[in-house]
Computed example of a mutant assay.
Amino acid sequence: MKPLVLAMLVAMLAQAALAQDGARDNPLIDGPTWQELRDDFVPSGTDVRDGAALFTVDAPYRANDAATVPVVIRQVDPTVTLRKAQVIIDENPAPMAADLTFGDRMQPVDFELRVRIDQYSNVRVLATTEAGTFMSGRFVKASGGCSAPATKDPTAALASMGQMRLKHFDESDNMSGQRRDAQIMIRHPNYSGLQRDQITQLFVSAHFIDSLEVYQGEELLFSLEGGISVSENPVFRFVYTDNGAPTLTVRAHDTEGNLFEQVLPKSVQS
């Protein structure tokens, strides 16, 4: 291989490696928005500490799709009980994406949801424990997620609204007492109020899931209070300890007053 060609190849590989490193290293950045928002989410006088030793937040540096950006909260200190976490997207029209509560069987927390991001923004997680309030997050380059057109026409979206699926990523059906990796998918357009009908060009009224509860038998795994930033057809992936109950029950309520409830057998793989 000629020296010039070899040098160019080495340079290209180096640039690719740097790009990958940058994608993994996208911490929160300083900006004025959080200073304006802070009092809305943190009581006056509260000391917010660096959450890096308690949990990590994983989100892409540059999102492939601003309407479905994965955000993963993963606890790294299993000795602490993490009950509450708020997912906040600084630059979104409604910054609070999700207010989460985790039950005993979710400890230590390993949880993923997908969100919309309207413009380049910090995505931060505020976690509350007995030891205080902690924060971590990522800066994500994405834009247009809150106004991105729905993937289905309104008639089809309403026809399937409320349908749910449960998937486990382990093969055994008898895992009482063991940690399990699961995913719940819910059909719902989760209209943000910022999208336009592609035919009439009129804005589609906001219509989204505002609360969600997931139970294992009679025991709460997690609950969520959500806003317009949770993606269309919400997907939640989480790790929990199996208590031996044969089912998970999901209850979802939306802003139109609809209540969707479904009992999902653990043994059914879909």
Results as ranks from 00 to 15, higher is better:
Thr155Trp: 04
His207Met: 05
Ala150Ile: 09
Gln195Val: 03
Asp197Gln: 06
Ser176Met: 15
Phe139Trp: 13
Ser172Glu: 11
Ala131Gly: 12
Lys152Ile: 08
Ile209Asn: 04
Met164Asp: 02
Ala159Val: 12
Asp110Trp: 14
Met175Asn: 13
Ser160Gln: 14
Arg180Trp: 13
Ala159Ser: 08
Thr101Ala: 12
Arg187Leu: 08
Thr151Phe: 03
Ser160His: 11
Thr101Gly: 15
His168Phe: 14
Leu100Ile: 03
Gln195Phe: 01
Ala127Phe: 15
Arg138Phe: 06
Ser143Ala: 12
Gly177Tyr: 07
Ser143Val: 12
Ser172Gly: 04
Lys152Thr: 07
Met185His: 10
Thr133Arg: 14
Asp99Asn: 07
Arg116Met: 12
Gln107Ala: 13
Asp110Ser: 12
Asn174Ile: 08
Met175Gln: 12
Ser121Cys: 06
Leu194Glu: 05
Asp181Ile: 09
Phe134Ala: 09
Ile199Tyr: 04
Gly145Glu: 05
Val125Phe: 06
Leu212Met: 11
Arg180Lys: 13
Ser136Ile: 03
Leu212Thr: 03
Val109Lys: 02
Gly103Arg: 02
Gly132Phe: 07
His207Tyr: 06
His168Ser: 15
Arg138Lys: 12
Leu166Lys: 05
Phe169Lys: 09
Ser147Cys: 08
Met185Leu: 12
Asp181Ser: 15
Met185Asn: 15
Ser121Gly: 08
Val140Leu: 08
Ser147Ala: 14
Gln195Tyr: 02
Arg138Asn: 08
Ser172Val: 09
Gly177Gln: 03
Ala182Gly: 09
Cys146Tyr: 01
Phe208Asp: 00
Tyr120Phe: 15
Ala206Gln: 02
Arg105Ser: 10
Pro149Asn: 14
Thr129Gln: 09
Gln163Gly: 14
Met175Trp: 05
Ala148Pro: 15
Asp197Trp: 05
Ile184Glu: 00
Leu126Ala: 02
Asn122Asp: 07
Asp118Lys: 09
Ala182Ile: 04
His207Thr: 05
Gln201Ile: 11
Gln107Ile: 14
Gly193Ile: 01
Ser160Leu: 07
Gln163Ile: 09
Ala98Thr: 05
Leu194Arg: 11
Phe139Thr: 08
Asp173Pro: 10
Phe111Met: 01
Ala206Tyr: 00
Val125Gln: 01
Gln201Val: 12
Thr101Asn: 11
Ser211Cys: 08
Ile186Asp: 00
Tyr120Arg: 12
Gly177Met: 02
Asp181Glu: 14
Ile184Thr: 04
Gly103Ala: 02
Gln107Gly: 07
Ile209Met: 06
Leu113Asn: 01
Tyr191Thr: 02
Ala98Gln: 04
Ala98Cys: 09
Gln107Asn: 10
Leu194Lys: 08
Asp173Trp: 09
Met175Tyr: 14
Phe134His: 06
Pro189Trp: 00
Met161Gly: 04
Ser205Lys: 13
Val140Met: 11
Leu212Pro: 01
Gly193Trp: 00
Asp210Arg: 02
His188Val: 00
Ala150Arg: 03
Thr200Lys: 03
